[in-house]
């Protein structure tokens, strides 16, 4: 296994899928000649040329809509949003067109498109560049939402997302792009809708998605070392489709659950999971399901404070100790 960066794992996924299917194209601001604002598409323009890797003007509504239209005719565009925060500009195209056109056409049309880019706070760029849209978008039937935490997951999920025949919202993280992880040389895919137990445990389930899954892993180590609590970490990887069975199996074993996410708390993904657990695992629970989100305010700029606004390992430890 090679140890590679998260961004390069994604890059490999693009290259492999472009080799495999001539209808796969990459588009977005600075993805081609500039190699991508975060270098996720590095080298692909040189390798595949301008037809397959295309720079677009700064026109999110226009180029996302163009990709959706192209996908209706069988092209498989992989569209980069330099920040998922900019999706707000393309909201109509994503929500009214990509998500609804299949339904409104009675199933005659489908949109095999991937819209991808970083969706995270924590980089001191202020509120306009720090949104997490996964709960918004997972609220829309017709869309799929994926949030990988590791290089391995990013590659395997991206390959599945590109082959998927529905619109997939793929949410990466600028704080993870440089993180290295082991990625096999041989081809592999990770299906959407399959959670991953990233740490086996018996005392409590820390359920999370995206970078919060890594925060949960750090918290689990602290809990084991300092409090003799053996936490299980379940990384959802994909929000919609959702692996409910994996969540339920973990909670039936541990009888306690905390959901951790970098979303805001109101109608966050954790709210959905907490609701599901009280409905389907009520008798298995020995404590209320708790949630940790980013603090409920716009993303603050001040670098020292922003670190505190997002869930930290010690926040999780504290929450866990309140119910263990």
């Amino acid at each position: 296994m090679a140890l590679i960066e998260y961004r390069d794992a994604l890059n490999q996924a693009f290259a492999e899928e472009m080799e495999r299917d001539p209808n796969v194209v990459l588009m977005g601001e600075e993805v081609a000649e500039y190699d991508g604002a975060y270098k996720v598409t590095r080298g692909l323009w040189q390798r595949f040329g301008s037809k397959r890797v295309m720079d677009t003007p700064i026109s999110e509504a226009g180029f996302i809509g163009m990709g959706i239209g192209a996908s209706m005719l069988g092209i498989r565009p992989v569209m980069e949003l330099m920040f998922w925060s900019f999706a707000a500009v393309a909201w109509d195209q994503i929500i009214n067109n990509a998500a609804q056109v299949r339904y409104m056409s009675g199933g005659l049309i489908n949109c095999p498109i991937v819209i991808r880019g970083p969706a995270n706070g924590g980089t001191n760029v202020g509120a306009t560049h720090s949104h997490n849209h996964e709960n918004f978008l997972a609220n829309i039937p017709g869309l799929k939402v994926v949030c990988p935490a590791t290089a391995y997951d990013a590659k395997g999920l991206m390959k599945s997302a590109i082959r998927d025949n529905d619109p997939v919202m793929f949410m990466e993280n600028t704080l993870l792009y440089g993180e290295k992880g082991e990625v096999p040389e041989a081809e592999y895919l990770i299906p959407l809708g399959k959670a991953d137990v990233k740490r086996e445990g018996t005392d409590i389930s820390l359920i999370a998605h995206g970078r919060a899954a890594l925060t949960a892993l750090k918290a689990a180590e602290l809990l084991a070392a300092e409090h003799n609590i053996n936490a299980e970490v379940v990384d959802l990887r994909s929000i919609r489709p959702l692996d409910e069975e994996a969540i339920l199996a973990s909670v039936r074993k541990t009888h306690r659950a905390v959901y951790i996410e970098e979303n805001k708390p109101f109608c966050g993904v954790g709210a959905q999971i907490a609701s599901m657990l009280q409905e389907k695992a009520f008798d298995d629970l020995d404590a209320p399901v708790l949630r940790i989100s980013s603090m409920d305010a716009p993303a603050i700029y001040s670098p020292e404070l922003e670190k505190k606004q997002l869930p930290r390992p010690l926040d999780i430890v504290e929450k866990v100790l309140s119910i263990c």
């Binding site: 509504a61 996302i64 163009m66 239209g69 192209a70 209706m72 005719l73 069988g74 067109n97």
Partner: peptide
Amino acid sequence: AGQTPLGLGLAYALKYK
């Protein structure tokens, strides 16, 4: 006007193919 980028995409797909 929501269909105007879609129309562009349809035409782009024709050219691509």
